[in-house]
Simulated scan of single mutants.
Amino acid sequence: MSVLPLVFTSGWASGVNAYAVVLLLGVLGATGVGDDVPATLQRPEVLVIAGVLFLCEAVADKVPYVDSAWDAVHTVVRPAAGAWVGALLAGQSGSLSDVAAGLLGGSTALASHAVKAGTRMAVNTSPEPFSNVVVSIAEDLGVGALVAFALFHPVAAAVIAGTLLLLGLVSLFFLVSRIRRFLRRRALRREERRVVGRPTGPPPW
């Protein structure tokens, strides 16, 4: 069976939370639940590093504006992780070339990362901080559930991932105007504070 659906799903999930994907696949493989998980992902050092970084993301991802800064840093990390996991999965199955799998996983991760980063910027326009926590938890649960589901039903999981990606891109299109208005208002407030802080009288000399 082609590993293409699993690569696509893992790529989508990597764009949302790459560390969760690596950690979950590694744990499922190490415990014998997932037979198709590459041995590299099951290595203890990989699991430890992924676990520590996952905890860091779990905290940063729930703090307004910190989450957007974290997303900016991971613009390269998440697509690279998606490409890496995709290449490993392809090498494990032998049904798809490593290069093709890497391109698919990386490009899908980049698209889903763009959706996540844009959505978070829109959520940060809300005055209350609880939206970030709710969205972050929903993302983590969605990634975990879909990656685990993909090991047993890869085609169905790929359909779900594709649908979520498409809906996310459409939503992002409509959120762009809201993000732009928020950024303009923030820039205007910053300029007003700067003008107010200027000395208005003549110099004392």
Results as ranks from 00 to 15, higher is better:
84 W>S: 12
101 A>D: 12
160 I>Y: 06
77 V>P: 10
137 I>W: 14
165 L>Q: 12
195 V>C: 02
136 S>E: 11
204 P>A: 15
60 A>P: 01
119 T>K: 01
12 W>G: 01
118 G>F: 00
50 A>W: 00
79 P>I: 05
114 A>C: 14
106 G>I: 07
149 F>R: 06
59 V>L: 15
101 A>R: 03
13 A>G: 09
170 V>S: 02
41 L>Q: 01
58 A>L: 14
140 D>Q: 11
80 A>W: 12
102 G>L: 08
66 V>F: 11
68 S>G: 08
102 G>V: 06
148 A>M: 14
176 V>M: 09
161 A>T: 09
90 A>K: 01
200 T>W: 11
73 V>Y: 06
21 V>R: 06
67 D>L: 06
45 E>T: 12
28 L>P: 10
153 H>A: 14
86 G>E: 10
45 E>D: 14
64 P>V: 10
96 L>K: 04
124 N>K: 10
92 Q>F: 09
16 V>S: 11
37 V>A: 10
133 V>R: 04
123 V>S: 01
204 P>G: 14
102 G>K: 13
184 R>F: 13
84 W>Y: 09
101 A>F: 03
21 V>N: 08
11 G>P: 05
197 G>Y: 00
3 V>F: 02
142 G>F: 09
104 L>M: 00
85 V>D: 04
56 C>L: 15
72 A>L: 15
68 S>I: 15
143 V>D: 01
93 S>E: 13
16 V>W: 07
161 A>G: 04
142 G>E: 13
93 S>G: 02
91 G>K: 02
120 R>I: 08
148 A>L: 08
133 V>M: 05
150 A>L: 07
47 L>I: 04
33 V>D: 03
47 L>P: 09
69 A>V: 14
30 A>R: 12
163 T>P: 01
171 S>F: 03
170 V>E: 00
174 F>Y: 06
129 P>K: 05
185 R>K: 14
174 F>D: 01
189 R>K: 14
25 L>D: 02
176 V>D: 07
149 F>W: 14
91 G>H: 09
18 A>H: 05
7 V>I: 12
40 T>Y: 00
112 S>W: 12
53 L>E: 01
124 N>E: 05
51 G>N: 03
122 A>Y: 05
50 A>G: 06
49 I>H: 02
78 R>Q: 08
105 G>F: 00
155 V>P: 00
52 V>A: 13
73 V>R: 07
197 G>V: 00
200 T>A: 12
142 G>D: 02
153 H>R: 05
204 P>F: 11
85 V>K: 05
168 G>M: 09
93 S>I: 03
117 A>D: 07
111 A>C: 09
167 L>P: 12
189 R>Y: 04
30 A>V: 03
88 L>Q: 03
46 V>Q: 07
194 R>C: 01
